[in-house]
Each structure stands twice: as C-alpha cells, then as structure tokens.
Computed example of a mutant assay.
Amino acid sequence: MRATVNQEFCESAGVCRGLVPDVFVLAGDGTTQAVAADVPLELEEDVTLAIDSCPRLAISLLS
C-alpha cells in the first residue's frame, strides 16, 4: 500500500504528520508529502486514521 497526498486539496494542517511522522512530512515548499514508498504493515492502521482525520480529505491509500 502507498499513501498519496492530493496537493490540490491539502492545506498542510499537519494532522497526518502528527499521527504518522514516518510516512508524512512537511516538504521544503510548505506542502505535506507522503515519503514512504510503501506503508509498512504496522503503520497501515495509523495511516487509515490520518486519512479519516484529514480536514480536506486529501490523503489516499493505494494498493
């Protein structure tokens, strides 16, 4: 599974970065990026929580 952040919707609120800092980071240009090529199995539940918590519904998990 791979997490992606839709930059058209993301407002960089930081909820996802707070929940899963190993997957989501603040890039140099101020945008939130998903940095893990594949989400580790042990973090999938946390990423799902980040998806559900995103105020702009900007995160997707792709198989």
Rank of each mutant, 00 (worst) to 15 (best):
G30N: 10
E44Y: 00
A27H: 06
E45G: 11
E42K: 02
C10A: 03
E8T: 04
S63W: 04
T31H: 14
C54D: 11
T48L: 07
N6I: 10
T4W: 00
A36E: 07
E44A: 12
A3F: 01
A50C: 08
C54S: 10
P40T: 01
T31Q: 09
I59W: 02
R2D: 06
L62I: 13
V23I: 15
E11R: 13
L19G: 02
T32A: 09
L62G: 06
P55T: 02
A50Y: 09
F24D: 09
T31S: 08
F24M: 02
D52T: 12
A36H: 12
D22C: 10
E44N: 07
Q7W: 06
A37H: 07
F24N: 05
L41D: 14
T4G: 04
A27D: 09
Q33D: 15
I59G: 03
A27C: 01
I51N: 02
A34Q: 04
R2V: 05
S63D: 11
D22M: 13
T32H: 11
P40K: 01
G28D: 14
G28R: 09
V23R: 05
F24Q: 02
A58I: 06
E42I: 02
N6H: 06
L43F: 09
T48V: 01
P21V: 15
L19W: 01
C10M: 07
N6G: 00
D22Y: 10
D46G: 02
R17T: 15
D46F: 05
L19S: 00
R56H: 12
S60F: 07
V39H: 08
R2T: 05
E42N: 06
L62F: 08
A50H: 07
P21M: 15
T4A: 04
L19Y: 01
V25N: 09
L26I: 09
L57D: 15
V15R: 13
G30Q: 06
L26P: 05
A3C: 04
F9T: 07
F24L: 03
G14C: 14
G14D: 09
D22Q: 15
T48W: 03
E45I: 07
A50I: 10
C10P: 06
A34L: 07
R17S: 13
D46I: 04
A13E: 14
L49Q: 14
A37K: 13
L57K: 12
T48C: 02
P55G: 01
C16N: 07
Q7P: 10
P40H: 00
V20A: 15
T32K: 04
D38R: 12
R56S: 11
E8I: 03
L41A: 12
M1G: 06
L26S: 13
L41K: 08
D29H: 08
R2N: 04
C16D: 08
V15T: 15
V25G: 03
E44V: 14
V35F: 11
L62A: 08
S12M: 10
V35A: 12
C16P: 06
V15S: 14
E44P: 05
R17N: 10
V25T: 11
V5F: 06
I59E: 03
E44C: 06
E45H: 04
E44S: 11
V23T: 11
L19F: 01
S12K: 07
T32P: 05
M1F: 02
V15Q: 15
C10V: 01
I51P: 00
L26K: 14
D29N: 15
I51G: 00
S60K: 06
E42A: 05
